[in-house]
């Protein structure tokens, strides 16, 4: 039997990991759902978020300032990128945007290397306090990360179901042409969605920074997991993304208690199995193009 204390901390660890993956994957998923683009550059905003948490956190002495700065900067960069680049390629095939955004991601890694060099940077955990959860000492920072993900999920849900812009986005995920036909500026909806996605990726990077080393390749390393999450959950589905982020977080975390190297591989096997049963993921829509 696995030690209960180990299991509890493993589950908490998995929840916090899943939370960070969720923050990243939700942007990717929303962008696909609405604009039919595969936006790999989200992982660049994630890296920028982490580096901002490092630099601004060091300069101001407050980690939370760093995270806020990372979120804002990521949002700003994604705004510029959307206006300059994605705007021109929305009409194309999704894989077209994937290549373009991969170029952005690689180019962005070059920019990061230019500013921060290749040496990994450590970010200090803002609070080392531990709390007692079912008799196990758990770092409170991990609970804060989970809290952020819950707030974001509820926030996104309220935004999509209670505000008129959110309703327009939901309608446009279903049929963008009809939304245009009503006279709603879809171009603005696209920008709003992309910036939200970018900012959430930046937030994810900032929150992840104290748990890992910040280095230029961090985006590429996280990418595989985020991919597997959106694929397992189904591209474009928010609910699917949440569920599969939680599952993958648990598999990686609890799995690594059993046998560490295999835990990293398990999500891939899971993905293959899901795809075998449902080629479009758990909650993905079967439609190909609009």
């Amino acid at each position: 039997m696995i030690d209960t204390q180990l299991l509890i901390s493993g589950v908490i660890f998995g929840l916090s990991l899943g939370s960070i993956y969720f923050l990243l994957a939700i942007g990717l998923s929303l962008c696909f759902g609405l604009m039919r683009i595969i936006s790999l550059d989200q992982l660049l905003y994630y890296s920028f978020g982490a580096y901002m948490a490092y630099t601004v956190g060091l300069a101001t002495g407050s980690f939370w300032f760093g995270v806020a700065a990372g979120t804002v900067v990521a949002g700003l960069i994604s705004f510029i990128v959307e206006r300059l680049i994605f705007r021109r390629i929305y009409e194309r095939d999704p894989t077209f945007s994937m290549i373009t955004s991969f170029g952005l991601l690689i180019g962005g890694i070059g920019v990061i290397k230019f500013f921060w060099g290749v040496v990994p940077r450590p970010v200090e955990v803002p609070t080392v306090i531990q709390v007692d959860v079912f008799g196990t000492a758990v770092p409170v920072y991990r609970l804060i990360v989970i809290g952020f993900a819950i707030v974001v999920y509820v926030g996104i849900w309220l935004f999509l179901h209670r505000t008129i812009v959110g309703k327009a986005i939901r309608a446009a995920i279903e049929n963008v042409e009809h939304v245009e036909g009503l006279g709603i500026n879809v171009s603005r909806l696209f920008t709003i969605t992309f910036v939200i996605a970018g900012a959430l990726s930046g937030l994810a990077g900032g929150l992840h920074a104290p748990l890992i080393m910040v280095d230029p390749m961090m985006g590429l390393e996280t990418m595989a997991f985020v991919f597997m999450i959106v694929i397992i959950g189904g591209l474009g589905s928010i609910k699917g993304t949440l569920i599969s982020a939680l599952i993958v977080g648990q598999v990686v975390s609890v799995g690594s208690i059993i046998y560490a190297p295999m835990a990293q591989m398990a999500p891939f096997v899971m993905m293959l199995l899901v795809l075998l049963v449902r080629p479009t993921g758990l909650y993905g829509s079967p439609l190909y193009k609009r």
Partner: peptide, 12 residues
């Protein structure tokens, strides 16, 4: 990376 990334975007 800087070069190849932005070259790719440019080509696209």
């Amino acid at each position: 990376e800087l070069f190849i990334g932005f070259l790719l975007v440019f080509i696209m």
